[in-house]
């Protein structure tokens, strides 16, 4: 059970039952996961849980004192709410410890139908101010907010002073650039929506096209997201990590952000000091080996900080995207 009293609760991703067991064994306090459909924002092929798998996963976690958080954090379009309603009811039946939600209709349904279960506000709700957070707290009894990756630590501190909800922040993994829950870039290129279908840069619409000179175009839905020379290794075409051209930058530049990962390992004490309750590791699409390595490293780090020791962090750079890491907005306003 989550009480919110544990400072430094480690919230880890699981895309499969095996990953969930790995995360629990590696020391995760909580694991977040979703069903195999559009009800969550990582609706990727081969990922996520059947109801039966989730039942087993909840048992496994609970027997070991860990919590399971069910992500229902996409936006049901008109005519499809039933899928989210079923998922919410199923979650209660399977005894998940909390729901992670973004849509107001979903939040209202759970707050009325399953009032005893914790509601966490997903980063997909894009609540970046005390006022927005307090709206969800007041209307739906939200107990925890997952903050967008756009705030500095002093700003997080100020938010905490004005809200009653717990704060969860991302500390490692994909460095999301756009305001989450407000991005239709993938849908513009592919016809599949991040908000409605839970899809971002779907793999079946990715192509790598080589020209006669050996340059590789990495494409999504027919749009070249980046082009790489013969000596560069071609990256996955995520729209907000691509290189583009215009009159200001005719040769191509990372218009939004470089392929880079968030790594806040050095800032853990500052985040705790700022009032952050839970640390979230991104990556439900990642392998078990990745989950094991990252979760173990952060388990040790959080325990060190709690015990007043300097955290000794294993080198995680090898696991980051493009082998580059950043502290993003958390470190400085100049990031914006």
């Amino acid at each position: 059970m989550i009480t919110g009293d544990v400072v430094g609760e480690l919230v880890c991703p699981a895309g499969t039952p095996a990953s969930l067991r790995t995360a629990v064994d590696a020391g995760a306090d909580s694991i977040y996961c979703g069903f195999q459909n559009a009800t969550n924002a990582r609706n990727f092929p081969g990922l996520n849980f059947t109801p039966k798998e989730l039942a087993g996963a909840v048992d496994y976690a609970h027997e070991r004192g860990a919590n399971v958080l069910l992500a229902l954090n996409s936006y049901p379009p008109a005519g499809k709410f039933e899928l989210w309603r079923e998922a919410a009811d199923l979650g209660a039946e399977l005894d998940v410890d909390a729901y992670i939600v973004a849509d107001m209709g979903v939040a209202r349904y759970i707050s009325e139908k399953h009032p005893d279960r914790r509601l966490h506000l997903s980063v997909q709700a894009a609540a970046a101010s005390p006022d927005a957070i307090n709206y969800y707290v007041r209307e739906f009894g939200v107990k925890r907010v997952v903050l967008p990756r756009i705030l500095t630590i002093p700003e997080i501190h100020e938010i905490k002073a004005e809200i009653s909800a717990e704060i969860e922040t991302f500390i490692f993994g994909n460095h999301g650039l756009m305001v989450e829950g407000r991005c239709s870039l993938t849908n513009y290129a592919t016809g599949l929506s991040t908000n409605m279908d839970g899809v971002c840069s779907p793999a079946h619409l990715v192509e790598y096209v080589k020209d006669s000179a050996g340059n590789m175009s990495s494409q999504l839905g027919g749009y070249t997201i980046d082009r790489f020379g013969p000596d560069e290794s071609a990256g996955y075409p995520t729209i907000c990590k691509g290189r583009y051209c215009n009159e200001v930058q005719p040769d191509g530049y990372y218009a939004f952000e470089e392929p880079i990962s968030l790594n806040l390992s050095k800032l853990l004490p500052d985040l705790m000091e700022a009032g952050v309750t839970a640390f979230k590791i991104e990556g439900r699409q990642r392998s078990r080996a990745y989950v094991r390595k990252v979760v173990s490293a952060f388990r040790a780090a959080v325990d060190d900080v709690r015990a007043g020791r300097d955290p000794k962090l294993a080198d995680l750079v090898a696991l980051t995207e493009g082998q580059k890491q950043t502290e993003g907005a958390f470190k400085t306003k100049k990031w914006r």
Partner: peptide
């Protein structure tokens, strides 16, 4: 269509 919003200003970034 507005496709995305960010905390970062991409106009400033280009310059």
């Amino acid at each position: 269509a507005c496709l995305a919003t960010s905390a970062r200003c991409y106009h400033a970034r280009a310059y």
